[in-house]
Design a protein around this nucleic acid. Sequence first.
DNA 1: GAAGTATTTGACACGACGTCAAGAATATGC
DNA 2: GCATATTCTTGACGTCGTGTCAAATACTTC
Lengths: 199, 199
Amino acid sequence: MRPREFDHDDVLRIAFDQFWRKGVRGTSLSDIARDAGVQRGSLYNAFGSKEALFLQAYERYAGDYFLALQKALGTGSLRKRLTAFFDLTITNFRSGTPPRGCPTTRGLMELGAAEGEGLDEEARQALAGLISRITALVQDALSAGAARGEFNGNAAAAALHIVTVTRGLAVLERAFGDEPQLRKIAAHTIDLLLGRKGG
Amino acid sequence: MRPREFDHDDVLRIAFDQFWRKGVRGTSLSDIARDAGVQRGSLYNAFGSKEALFLQAYERYAGDYFLALQKALGTGSLRKRLTAFFDLTITNFRSGTPPRGCPTTRGLMELGAAEGEGLDEEARQALAGLISRITALVQDALSAGAARGEFNGNAAAAALHIVTVTRGLAVLERAFGDEPQLRKIAAHTIDLLLGRKGG
DNA sequence: GAAGTATTTGACACGACGTCAAGAATATGC
DNA sequence: GCATATTCTTGACGTCGTGTCAAATACTTC
């Protein structure tokens, strides 16, 4: 057995950085190979294909991001939690120079173009899976933080609404790049759900 | 002058059909050329580049779609208008077999991957432009249909919220393909804005 | 009918993905 | 300690995509 000449995790991080900045289709394995100081063929040997590499790099990111969201949604009043949730979401979309947008949304719209392939479906599930997990997380926070009968006892619908708005924010980020606008929409959404005062 | 051997508009329609189904990056000019019965080189001669062709094909679509939305938002009570708006939006996302999703959102996330090119920016503006125009349209409908002081006199924020939700619906469509879910979110959004009963 | 002009056509250059066989470097067995 | 087996690396190759160009073609106009 010959040992790897590169660190598996390093490559994953370098690859995801590129995927995030330039999109999956806009990133070539040559780019990643150059950046990581690895031969292109070695990437195929270690990860299988470009989409498989993206998938693994994405799972890495998704795990970290989910934990951060969990933390943001876990403390304080319901309004505080939702504010922290939207803040983290928007800050994430606007991170980097230039802002990199939402990798989940981006990947979701980018992949699975053709006719229904095998690996594409796996990637779609990974991306959609994070959205599902976030929705469940928000729903828990709503249920836990709902003192009175807010949401008419339907935290599931409210959580889905909130997550839908965040997906919309990801799209608007890319369309206009107007961060204050995104934050206004977020604040408006919270007010809409909790009322303009308490929470 | 030698005359064209193909119809400019036909090619635009055929091209957009492919772009819509398979995405911009997932569609090759060879595909379009074959489908349209035109030589690939002729497309370059007539439209300049793949993105320019997409841009022209998209403008065609956007014009038609905007008119349909205008019609949906122009009649009946405010609730009726919004219901028709969401219905048209979702129906559009779910048209085709398999459902093609939202071409605007898809295009927005797909394009402009690299570093800031020329034509990409033009396409981004075209795609973002439709979103802006739709927002203005919704805002007009809200202002016109608002009998009482709904939205606290802030129809702009409400319109932006609505459009944000539609963009989110486009993403969820692609993530889960669950049309009833989309319609539930839409109904929930309307209730949230107008209250559960009147409108 | 001849000249001019725009379109078509096919070849070309380039870059991307993915595959493969041959070479290189380490672990294991004797 | 050395040979062998196993894995990784490396470079060449095939295929397909975009975009360019010069030559051929077909119409319009004088």
